[in-house]
Every structure is written in structure tokens, then in C-alpha cells.
Amino acid sequence: MITVNSVYHDYEGKGYYAVSDISFSIEGGKIFGFLGPSGAGKSTVQNIMTGLIPLQRGEILYNGQSVKALKTKFFNQIGVSFEQPNVYAKLTGYENLKYFAALFSVPTHDPMKLLDRVGLRESAHKKASEYSKGMRQRLTLARALINKPKYLFLDEPTSGLDPSTAASVRELIREQRDGGAAVFLTTHNMELADSLCDTVAFLYGGKIAAMDSPEVLKLEYGKRLVTVTYDEAGNECSKSFDMSDRKALAEFLVDVNPIKIHSQEATLEEIFLRVTGKELKS
């Protein structure tokens, strides 16, 4: 379990906090989504959690042990996929994974099987410098998984991927969760968060603006709507009704010639807009 308590970070030491009062916890076998636009402080929190940035104020615990007291061996249990793919360009995809696999003192995956899972088997013996950005992104993800991590940190894991590859990456992430890993997912892709996360936190201006499961957030902040598409003098028009206002919907349906009727719930994107007053754009 990862516990984050009241974490603050000031890059310049001038009293301006990039992130402030960040608190949450992630249990094993759960995916925690950290959502927010670029510059909200998502990567800062991830970097503090993985020890890449020193913890200035607050507390981060891995099964009760402070991040400040972690020994080198602990990093056998962590896997990190960075937003910017960072692999050895002059080594092949296979060599990259083999190289990192040898650094761990715990059982690791077979590099070739992992490359197969991320769709890189055929390019396994090509130099990483010849990979496209999406391929390097997948290689970075495979590297993060090589040591069967107990704590998995993923920063925009589907960024720049085509829909089919993004779907297989999603499946891979679900498998890690099902295997008991605590997954920390950083993204501004609300669709990805909605489909994967057990809990999401909206980060805006360095602070958590809302945090709960996607379902609860939708119930709390979103409206369930019914949209009626109807014919009006040969033109297709549509009108939405709050699902709780059934009387208005019934009266409207009597007066028009309906073509389609759809029920719909608020998206996380709309909820983010409602909570923060800002659109979630990268």
C-alpha cells in the first residue's frame, strides 16, 4: 500500500508550491488515476513518490516505510514508465529490456515475451533509434513491467498510441492490477482514466480538487440526461432532458416525431470542468 500524506513541493524555495497538501492512498490491486491538465503537478507528485525529486514536506509511505528511508533494494519492487520515452537509442528493444532485467535481484519477465505483449516482437532486434515515438513509448512501458513490480507508476501510458495499441496497453495495465500491483496512473486522458481507474483524483493548480471513484464522482457532480433526436420539417434536431424531469420528457415526446432517444451520463471531462471551472486540455 502506498500512503501519501500532506505532500508539498516548492521547486525554487520561494514559497510558491508546485503541489500542496496532496494526500491519498493506493492499495495493492487498485488503479489510482491522477488527472489534470499539463502543468497541474502530476509528474511532480509521481517524481516525489519514486524518489526522483526529494520529499520536502509531508510523508510518503510504502507499506509503512518512508520514501526517505528506502534502500537501493526497494527499487526491485518499483516500475516506472515515463511520459517521454527514455531508452538506449543505440541498443535494440530486446537489448534494452535484457539490460534492465539484469539490474534487478528479483525474478523478471522474459524480455521477448514482454515485447510480444506490447506488440514489438517483430521489431525486437531493431535499434530503438529506429522506433517510432509510439514504439518507444511501448518499450518504456515494457521496461517498467520487466521486474513484475509491486508498485507501478505510469505517466501518460497511451499518449501517442493508435487506438488498437492503446487498447492492448489498457489490457496490460488491468493485468498488473489483477496481479496485485498498486498502479499510479498519471494522465489527462479522461477516457483512459474512466475505463481503468478504481479511484481518480482531479489535480488542478497543484491541489486535489476532487477525489473518488469515477462512478461516485459522476453521481455527485454529473447529471444523467436523456437526449431526444427528432424530425422537424425534414431537419434532424435534438434536445436533452434531465432524467429526473420525466414529465417534461413525456410531454415533449407527445409533440414531436422522435428518431432516436439516448440516455447519457456526464463524462469525467465534464465533471472536471464543473469542479475546477477549467477545461481539461493538454
Binding site: 526522483l52 526497494f74 527499487f75 526491485n76 516506472v80 515515463f82 527514455n86 539490474l103
Partner: peptide, 14 residues
């Protein structure tokens, strides 16, 4: 320059 040093930092290498 490649950024791989960041990956080394979170590897149990020492």
C-alpha cells in the same frame, strides 16, 4: 541526453 539516467535512478543498481 537520452534520459536513461532517470530510469537508472529508479533501478536497484547503486
Amino acid at each position: 541526453e537520452e534520459g536513461t539516467i532517470r530510469a537508472m535512478r529508479i533501478a536497484p543498481i547503486g
